[in-house]
Amino acid sequence: MRNRQREAWAARSNSRSCCPGGGCPGVSVASGSLRSPSSLALVPHSAAVGTNQPAQPTAQTPPDSLEISLIRARSQDPTFHYRRRPPPAMPPPAPTYTRYETRRRDPDPRKAALLVIDVQGHFASLAAPIMPAIASTVALCRSAGMPVVHTRHVDRDDVPRSRPLREWWPGDRIDAGTPAAELLPGAGRAEGDLVVEKSTYSAFAGTGLEEALRRAGAEEVVVCGVMTNLCCETTARDAFVRGFRVFFSADATATASRDLHEATLANMAYGFAYIVDCMRFEAALGKVAK
């Protein structure tokens, strides 16, 4: 009798569950332990609720390039740390940025400098699809007589990383003297180009870049490189605040996803920068040459 009562009670409990089979898909009913969500098929909510038929799993959505995985801290701290998986290369850019434009202007090569942001070994996979556009942009600016400045992010033992960077990118260092810290051969560096080492998102923070640009007579900057939504966007915003007119490349910048890239272009066009690409840039410099 008691066994039959326990079986009936278990059956009623399972029938109240929102998920077929008696329990949420992330929890093992037998042991109560957590199962990895990545091993589970996605079940439509409409199929899981209000029916006695087993739901048909749909194809699992591939994880986003910046999907966050949880790892427990090795210390006694009970909180969780977040670590991002290395992002793959962004798909080749499409000329969609014009829909974001609120105003248009051509750069003046007599007053402008090109900033090539962090085209270095650490970001080689992100930069790979845009290397032809970066090479074209550098060549166009150089032929127009514009100063070309390269930046690279470097972590040095004698300079502690800032707390925010340690929190966002734990263990993700770019050590000086390693291939990750070196500029990529296709970045177009030439003898005489200024190379600026930085340790945070903005190329202006504690680097002397503003003073170097002022000495060169630059009033405008053109920003290209990686990552669109981090170092490129932060450098562009910082340049704007410091009084430079900013031009932002749509096809010579890249980041971890199309959504992040497009979001930055929309923000830049709304209130910080004029958006350009290689074709528009070539046309603008051609006008000045004539």
Rank of each mutant, 00 (worst) to 15 (best):
A10V: 03
N14F: 02
G21D: 09
G22L: 01
C24I: 13
S28N: 15
V29F: 07
G32F: 03
S33A: 14
S36T: 05
S38D: 14
S38W: 13
S39D: 08
A41C: 10
V43C: 13
H45T: 11
S46R: 12
A48L: 13
G50D: 14
T51F: 08
N52W: 09
Q53V: 14
A55V: 13
T58A: 15
L66D: 12
E67D: 12
R72N: 09
R74I: 06
P78M: 00
P88H: 12
M90I: 03
M90P: 00
M90V: 00
P93R: 10
A94S: 01
A94T: 04
P95I: 08
P95L: 10
T98R: 15
R99C: 10
E101S: 12
R103N: 14
P109L: 01
A112N: 02
L115N: 04
I117R: 00
P129E: 01
M131W: 03
A133L: 05
T137K: 00
L140K: 09
S143R: 14
A144Y: 06
G145W: 07
V148K: 11
V149R: 13
V149G: 08
H150R: 04
D158W: 09
R161C: 02
S162Q: 11
L165V: 10
E167I: 11
E167D: 07
W168N: 12
W168T: 13
P170W: 03
P170K: 05
D172A: 13
R173S: 13
P179H: 11
A180F: 10
G186E: 15
R189K: 13
V195L: 06
S199Y: 12
T200V: 08
Y201H: 11
Y201M: 08
T207Q: 05
G208N: 00
A216V: 08
E219G: 13
V226N: 04
T228V: 00
N229P: 01
C232H: 03
E233C: 02
T234S: 14
T234D: 04
T235L: 03
R237Q: 04
D238P: 02
F248W: 08
D251H: 05
A252N: 07
A252W: 05
A256S: 07
L260M: 02
A266G: 04
A269K: 07
A269R: 09
G271H: 04
R280M: 08
A284L: 10
A284D: 06
G286T: 01
K287V: 13
V288A: 14
